[in-house]
């Protein structure tokens, strides 16, 4: 699909897009200051950097995730000092290995720049916790543990966040978790229990 079709016809391209993030830095990863600095400082941990819709995504190796984020936070010229979001994505249907991505959305209040740091890992691998760097990561990591079963190494209090503490049916945002759960639940007012939705990805 051409760019013309995407923007709704020729002659219809205003100076600034409505959904713009206000990003004004270089769009090529080779020139982005944070990417250049991380490549210099962590040559072994750097995997790649992608720009999509003016959002820079930096991918690093899992063991160095916390060091990279700490460097991005403390380096005087970068100062990504605000943790916007921390979450995970189950890449089960998109690739074989590694299965999960942990996604850290960083924001720099003084420089007004966003950066996304990602790191891939398999089921059971410990992911370095961000709580020593940002207190706000506490509940976000608890939620990621709750929904995906990710173990964050160094988290002070890794419990379930939104589901009950005694929930024994696994982690619902995994792609192999059926939409209505593994068990059949009694519906009040109905004779038969709620039907299960069949899924291509069943628990073995």
């Amino acid at each position: 699909m051409s760019e013309e079709q995407l923007t709704g016809g020729p002659g219809d391209t205003p100076a600034r897009r409505v959904w713009d993030t206000g990003y004004w830095g270089p769009t090529e990863p080779e020139n982005h200051p944070a990417i250049v600095a991380v490549r210099e400082q962590f040559p072994d941990a750097y995997v790649d950097a992608v720009n999509f819709r003016d959002e820079m995504t930096l991918r690093v190796e899992r063991p160095a995730l916390r060091e990279v984020v700490q460097y991005l936070r403390d380096e005087r010229s970068l100062r990504y000092n605000f943790l916007s979001d921390l979450t995970a994505v189950d890449m089960l249907r998109l690739r074989d290995n590694p299965r999960f991505d942990v996604v850290v959305q960083l924001y720099s209040i003084p420089n007004r720049q966003r950066l996304r740091v990602k790191s891939g890992f398999n089921d059971g691998d410990p992911v370095p916790s961000m709580v020593p760097l940002f207190e706000g990561a506490n509940w976000l990591e608890r939620e990621a543990y709750d929904m995906f079963g990710i173990v964050f190494e160094g988290h002070p209090d890794l419990r379930r966040m939104l589901l009950p503490d005694d929930w024994d049916e696994g982690h619902p945002l995994r792609k192999d978790y059926p939409l209505r759960g593994y068990r059949e639940y009694v519906q009040p007012g109905y004779e038969s229990p709620a039907p299960r939705v069949s899924s291509r990805f069943r628990r073995p």
Binding site: V18, W19, D20, T21, G22, Y23, N81, F82, L83, S84, I109, R112, R114, F134, E135, G136, A137, L140
Partner: peptide, 26 residues
């Protein structure tokens, strides 16, 4: 900042971060 507060909770403490000003959308 460390607790990732936003909105009036952050600005009440004197940190100037409003998404409408910082990275204007619309």
């Amino acid at each position: 900042i460390s607790y990732s507060l936003t909105g009036a909770c952050l600005r009440g403490s004197g940190i100037n971060y409003d998404v409408r000003k910082a990275t204007p959308y619309l």
